[in-house]
Design a binder for these strands. Structure first.
Lengths: 355, 355
DNA sequence: CTGAAAGCGCTTACAG
DNA sequence: CTGAAAGCGCTTACAG
C-alpha cells in the first residue's frame, strides 16, 4: 500500500499534533468541522510528513474505489488512442482513475475482461463493445460507446450524420459514381456511416460497396482492392469508412498512376494520425471524442451516485442516455471536383479547402 | 465497493456454513489448511452466493493493491496501442491490473500523472518517458521503457541494432546514397536508430538527415519534405525512423510520380498498423513488445516483492535491468535494389521478399 | 470545535 | 484441522 511506504498515516499526524484522527480526517477533507488554525496546522504536518491517503482504507470504509474500467474490443485499433486519452482525461476530471482491459476482439474474453474489472472493484465501466456484441448483465453501471443504432448504446458519434456530410461533400463536388469502401458488414458503426454517405449523395448517384473483409477472405490479407479498375469503369470518388482504408485506396491509386484528387477523390473517417501528413492530405470526418467521453463519464458517475444511497440489491446495467455527438468534416486535399463531369456540367460547387 | 454489491462477503459465507471467516478465507485461498471436504463446501457456497472478494479489504490488510500504473508520454502516439496491449497482458498474467495515465507530452503533467498513480496506490509503474525526461525519485518501483542509451532505462528494443539491420538491408540492395528521415534530434530512440542505420551501410555510403520538426518549424506542419528533389540529386533510398514518416515519404514520392521501389526505396520503423496495407507495403522493423512488456513487468514485480518484507523507509526508484530486446526486419515491397547502380555494379544481392 | 468508538472486509499469527 | 482475535487506515454518526 502506498501509505505503508512512508509510514505517515492519519494516526501519525494525529499523535504528532496531539489531536484525534477524526479531527485530522475532518481537517484534511475540509468539511469545515475544524477550526481554521487547527486545519492549517494539520495541513502543514501532513505535508511535512509526506502524507498520502490510503485508497484502500478509504475504499473499505466508504465503499467507493474511485476507479472506473475501460473495456476495448481491441487496443490495437488505431482509434483506441483517441478514446483512451479522452476517457482518461474525463475520468480524472471527475476524480476517477481508469483501469484498462483489452477484450482482444473476442466475446468470451470481453466477458472475462469485464469480470476482472469487477473483481478489481471498479465502480462503473465504459465499454466499447466488440462488433455485434451485446453487453450482458454487469454488476455495476456500464456506459456503452458504439453507435446510435446499437441497442443499449449510451453515447457515440452520430456516424450516420457524419456519413451524410461526406456524401453531401462529394455531391457538391459533382461526384455521382462513388465506390464505398467498408470492411465488415456486421458493424453497426460502418453501416451507419455507409447509410449516411448514400443519403448525402444525389438521388441519381450510383454507388457500389467494396467489403474488404470479403475480398481478403478470397484473395488474402493485403490484397489489391482493384481501385484502378473502378476508375476505368467511370467511378470518380472513393468514400472509405475509415482512414485506414482510405489510405489503402490512396496508395493503391497512386501506385497505379492515378492522380488524387485530379482523377479520383478519396475520403476517409476518423482523422487518424496520418490523415494530415500523407500527400495529398486526407479529407476525413472527425468525432469529438472529448465530448463523447464527457457524456459517457457524466452518465456513469450520475448512475453511480444514484445507486449508492439506497441499497438496491442489484442495480448495475447499461446506462441508457442515447446521445449522438455531431461529427466534423475536415476537407483536405484528397477530395476535389469531378473533372470528368466538369466539362458538361456547371453545377459543381468547388469545395473550400482547409489545410 | 464491489463486495457491497451482492452483499456476499466472507462473513456471509461463514455464517451460512457455521464456520469461522478464517476458515473460509483459508479455504478460498487454497493454502491447504482446511480439509478437502470443507474446502469444497466453502467453494460451492461462495459460488452460490456470487462472492467476489473485496480488493479494498484485502489491500488494506496485505498492503498490496494489486495495481500497476502505466505512464505514457502521449496516448495519441501510434505506437501506444502496442505498448498498452502488451503491458496490460503481461500485468494480467502476473495478477495485476493496469491504471493508465497520460502525460500529454508535458514534463509537469508527467510528474502529476505519476503522483496521481501513487495516490491511487499502485505498487509499481511502467513509464515511457517523454523525450529527454529523466524520472525523478518516485515512491515506488519504476520500470522505464525508452532506449538503451537513456540513463536509467530498464528495458527497451535495441533500436541501434534495428537501425543496423535497416542499413545492412539497404547496403545489400546496393544503396549508397541514403536520406535518413528523423523527427526530433533530442530523441534517444531516434538517435539510436539513426546511428544504427549509418553503421549498417557501407563505409563509402553518403547519408543526409532530414529533421522533420526543423523543417516544419520553418514551413509549417504537414509541409512537403522535398523528397523528389533528393531523388533528382541522386539519392536512391529513404530510411525513416518511424512508419509515420515513411508513409509521408512514400505518398509524397508517389504524388510526384516517382515509383517505389523501382526509383526509390523507402523503409520505416515499428510496423505500425498501416505498414502492411499500403501499396507498396512498407519494409519496416518491428519490436517484440510482448517481450519488452514481459521483462518490464517481471523486473517490476521482482522489485515489489523484494521491498515488501524488509521495511526499508524509502526504497522506490528506477529498476535497472538494461535489457535490450532484438528487433525484427520485415521486408515488404517498398524496398528494392538500387536500379541506378545496377547497370555498372553486380554486387547488389537482391533482397528476399516477405509479404 | 474536538474526541472516543465502531466498523468497512480481509488475512494472519496464535491457540486449541 | 478449525476458531477467536487483532488490526490494516479510513470516515462517520454520536457525544461532549
Amino acid at each position: 500500500m502506498n501509505s505503508g511506504r512512508t509510514g505517515a498515516n492519519l494516526t501519525a499526524i494525529a499523535s504528532a499534533l496531539n489531536v484525534s484522527t477524526a479531527t485530522v480526517s475532518n481537517a484534511l477533507s475540509g468539511k469545515g468541522r475544524v477550526s481554521a488554525e487547527l486545519t492549517e496546522k494539520v495541513r502543514q504536518k501532513a505535508a511535512e510528513l509526506g502524507y498520502v491517503p490510503s485508497v484502500a482504507g478509504r475504499a473499505l470504509r466508504t465503499g467507493k474505489s474511485g476507479v472506473l474500467g475501460l473495456v476495448l474490443p481491441d487496443i490495437a485499433n488505431p482509434l483506441f488512442p483517441q478514446i483512451a486519452q479522452a476517457i482518461e482525461k474525463a475520468a480524472a476530471a471527475a476524480g476517477y482513475g481508469v483501469l484498462i482491459a483489452d477484450s482482444h476482439g473476442d466475446v468470451a474474453m470481453q466477458t472475462q475482461a469485464i469480470n476482472r474489472l469487477i473483481e478489481r472493484g471498479v465502480e462503473g465501466m465504459v465499454v466499447v463493445p466488440r462488433r455485434g456484441t451485446r453487453i450482458g448483465t454487469v454488476d455495476c453501471p456500464v456506459a456503452v460507446i458504439d453507435s446510435p443504432s446499437t441497442p443499449g448504446n449510451t453515447v457515440s458519434a452520430d456516424h450516420w450524420e457524419g456519413g451524410h456530410q461526406v456524401g453531401r461533400h462529394l455531391a457538391e463536388l459533382g461526384h455521382d459514381r462513388v465506390v464505398i469502401i467498408g470492411n465488415n458488414p456486421d458493424s453497426n458503426v460502418q453501416n451507419d456511416r455507409i447509410g449516411g454517405i448514400r443519403s448525402g449523395l444525389t438521388n441519381a448517384a450510383h454507388t457500389e460497396i467494396v467489403w474488404i473483409s470479403a475480398l481478403e477472405k478470397q484473395n488474402g490479407a493485403g490484397c489489391p482492392l482493384g481501385v484502378a479498375d473502378k476508375v476505368a469503369q467511370g467511378f470518380t470518388a472513393f468514400a472509405a469508412v475509415s482512414d485506414l482504408h482510405a489510405l489503402r485506396v490512396l496508395t493503391e491509386l497512386q501506385r497505379d498512376g492515378i492522380n488524387v484528387p485530379e482523377q479520383a477523390t478519396v475520403t476517409g473517417f476518423d482523422d487518424l494520425i496520418w490523415a494530415p501528413v500523407v500527400t495529398p492530405a486526407l479529407t476525413t470526418i472527425r468525432m469529438d471524442m472529448a465530448r463523447i467521453a464527457d457524456v459517457a463519464i457524466t452518465a456513469l458517475v450520475r448512475s453511480i451516485d444514484m445507486e449508492s444511497p439506497d441499497n438496491s440489491p442489484v442495480s448495475g446495467g447499461v446506462v441508457a442516455d442515447i446521445s449522438k455527438v455531431v461529427m466534423e468534416l475536415i476537407v483536405r486535399h484528397s477530395s476535389g471536383p469531378n473533372n470528368k463531369k466538369q466539362a458538361n456540367n456547371k453545377t459543381s460547387t468547388a469545395g473550400e479547402r482547409t489545410s
